[in-house]
Simulated scan of single mutants.
Amino acid sequence: MSGNLSTPGASVTSRAFAVLGAFDVDHRELSLTELASRAGLPLPTAHRLARELVGLGALERREDRYAIGRRLWDLGLLAPVQFELRQVAAPFLQDLYGATGATVHLGERDGGQVLYLDRLSGNASVPVVSRIGGRLPLHATGVGKVLLAWAPEDVQRQVLASLTRVTPYTITQPGRLREQLRRVRREGYAQTVEEMSQGACSVAVPIRASAAGDVVAALGLVVPDLSRGRARLVSALQVAAAGIGRSLRVSLSGSER
C-alpha cells in the first residue's frame, strides 16, 4: 500500500480500504502490527479503523489477530453478475455433482487470479485447496487456464511473465503454457495434472453469457485421475456450461427490461 495514506489528506474511506486490502490469499489473518504495516498506516490509525470495521462486520477479531468478516462476502455476492451467475448456476452445479461425484468449481477471473464463486466437494478423497471466495493462480488450475485462454492479451502477457511453481508439475515455461492456451481455445476445454496440488487433476470449460460468445466464467471438475473418463467429464461440463449460459442470458436480459 502507498505510504501517503498516513498523511492528513488521505480520506477515511481510502484508509479503510487500505486496511481491507492488506488481506490476500497468503495473508488471511493478520496481527495489528502486520495489518498496519501492510496497509501503510500508523499503528493507532490501523487499530481505530480495525476496531470500527469489526463492529461493522467487515473484519473479525480472532484473539490477537484479524480476518475478513462474513459481511464483506455477503455484500460481494450482491454484485449483479456474480449474484446472477451463482443463482443461475446452482442447479446445474448440483446436477453435475450428481452425475460425476467430483468436486465442482465455478470461477471467474479477477485480475491475474481465478476467484472461486462456488464449490461442491466431491466424494473422492482428492486434495482440493480451493475455497469459496478464495483465489488461486490462473496458470495452475483448470478453471484458471480456461479464463486465461480467453483473457485479454495484456493479462496473458502479465501472467506468462511471472509463472510461479506450485508443485513439481506446474507449467512455468511461457512458451509451453501459451501453446496450451491455444489448444484450450481450439478444443474448448482445459485440463491440469497435479499442477495445483499433487494427487488432483482438473478439467474445465468456459461459460458464455452472450450471443457473441463472451466468456464470463469457467466451470470445472477435480478428480484423482484423467487417464480414463475425460471425454465423459468434458461432455458433462459442456452440457452444464451451455445450460448456465442460456439461463444467464435470459436472466440478465430480463433484469434489463
Rank of each mutant, 00 (worst) to 15 (best):
G144F: 08
H139M: 08
R119V: 11
V126Y: 00
L115S: 10
A140D: 11
Y116E: 07
Y116W: 09
Q113Y: 13
V129T: 07
G142A: 12
G142P: 09
R131Y: 10
I132V: 15
P127Y: 05
G134S: 03
V129L: 04
D118N: 13
P137Y: 05
Y116F: 13
S121W: 01
N123I: 14
G142H: 09
L117E: 10
A124G: 10
P137H: 07
L117A: 09
G134T: 02
V143G: 14
G134C: 07
R131T: 09
G144N: 07
L136K: 04
V143L: 08
P137S: 10
S130Y: 05
S125E: 15
S130H: 06
G134Q: 01
G144P: 06
I132D: 06
P127M: 00
A140Q: 08
G112Q: 12
L117Y: 09
D118S: 14
A124S: 15
V114F: 10
R119W: 00
L120D: 10
G144H: 06
D118V: 11
G144Y: 00
R119A: 05
V143S: 14
V128G: 00
L136Q: 10
Y116L: 06
R135E: 13
H139A: 05
Y116A: 05
V114G: 08
D118Y: 03
V126N: 01
S121V: 14
V128E: 01
L115Y: 06
L120G: 05
V128T: 07
A140P: 07
L120E: 11
V128S: 01
G133T: 07
R131Q: 09
G133V: 09
P137F: 00
S130W: 03
R119G: 04
R119S: 08
R131E: 00
G144Q: 04
Q113A: 15
G112P: 08
R131V: 08
G134V: 00
S125V: 13
P127G: 00
H139R: 08
L115F: 06
L115V: 05
P137D: 10
